[in-house]
Design a protein around this nucleic acid. Sequence first.
DNA 1: CGGGAAATAATTGTATACATTATAGATCAA
DNA 2: TTGATCTATAATGTATACAATTATTTCCCG
Lengths: 227, 227
Amino acid sequence: MSKASETAYFYIRSHILSGQFAPGKQLREEELAAGCGVSRTPVRDALRRMEAELYVRRGDNQRTYVAEWTVQDIQDIFTLRDMLEGYAAARTAERATPEVIAQLAEYQQAIDVALNRKEGADVEGFLHYNRAFHRLLIETAGSERLTALLARLLQQPIIVRTALSYDVADLLQSNAEHKMLVAAITAKDPEWARAILSGHIRRAFHVYEAAHTRLNARRPNEPPEDN
Amino acid sequence: MSKASETAYFYIRSHILSGQFAPGKQLREEELAAGCGVSRTPVRDALRRMEAELYVRRGDNQRTYVAEWTVQDIQDIFTLRDMLEGYAAARTAERATPEVIAQLAEYQQAIDVALNRKEGADVEGFLHYNRAFHRLLIETAGSERLTALLARLLQQPIIVRTALSYDVADLLQSNAEHKMLVAAITAKDPEWARAILSGHIRRAFHVYEAAHTRLNARRPNEPPEDN
DNA sequence: CGGGAAATAATTGTATACATTATAGATCAA
DNA sequence: TTGATCTATAATGTATACAATTATTTCCCG
């Protein structure tokens, strides 16, 4: 996508991710257009794209609202990730070339370095190489369009935020799992790879769950935001 | 979507499904607009939607082409359907109310009737109630996001065409599987439901595969279509 | 006072003109 | 002849005006 369209997309997306556009809020095209200094046309483009990515939803009235996530939705997201990424990992184990394996190991070691710095863990670095690791894993699965699309759909606000719930112990555990995953792929054992990935994601779910519970305990009766 | 947008969507989609727009063909917005008597704006809308649904793909050049399907893509679709619908079936088994079960049984019986008419099988009727059956199954699973994902996958050209490869014996077998699925859901046994659905879809894949092989045997070196 | 229909306002849908970008072709130099 | 660069052409991207639809308010009737 070219300039204005991208501008609109990232403007809206960042406002949703940051919570400035709260779940359920109606998104008016003109308002958004004015907000990021483009016309309605690229805004409409961005909204269509975000609809496909489940960031927003469209009512029966043709109006657009920020997506609202139920607990069930979140569980489903993790379950689907489990299935889909597990499948991708298994296929990668069957197909990975020495070059890919070396690259995965490299990312894993880069995470190692980021986590064990003298001046404390480099979370940004972790996130960067973590993304690279998972992306390569999925790409190597070789069912590019489907797996990539599904992965993109699962790149939801809730998932993005979950990474921020990780403490250092979680990050280290995550890295240990990556190391095992590289071993499974090197051994070309698809079921081993699937099992590790499955555990990896299920653990992420429980980290999210714990953080969510803490959050709710802290503010049990928060009134709904004003939209 | 309102009128012009829908017009464009169905115009393009039907031409892709019928093969008039062959895989790989470039789709020019103006051409499409002229073809269905609307302006470029709704055509662009339709193309964005069809991009998300994987009917078309966009090159690096911002141009749009009819999607090309590799054998691997098709295998992946069936594998993913297996996982996703299996999950949906399992959830449905846990959640289905007596009303839903009765409705599923009704659809299954309607298929029974359509297949066992004196004057021969009513394939149209089969397709109609088959769709209704699977849709209710997925809806009852109770996850909007899941439903959205499945809808995208299930609507692919390759799937639509697969149904046409079924002969009457396949249809009868399919119906027998539906009947068992209703039993599994009535028994509230999620893993039974998952197993049946899994077999259901895997069998569909092999029916498709066989038809595909026959087709390739008949015209082994067909030249690429002119676009 | 309450309910409903009509008028009004707000929002999205569509068409068109123009801007920008990418491709293909031509021209020229090495 | 080949390759590169510039130019022309054709495609997509964007802005704007207007049409159609949906929501809201108003006002009248019961």
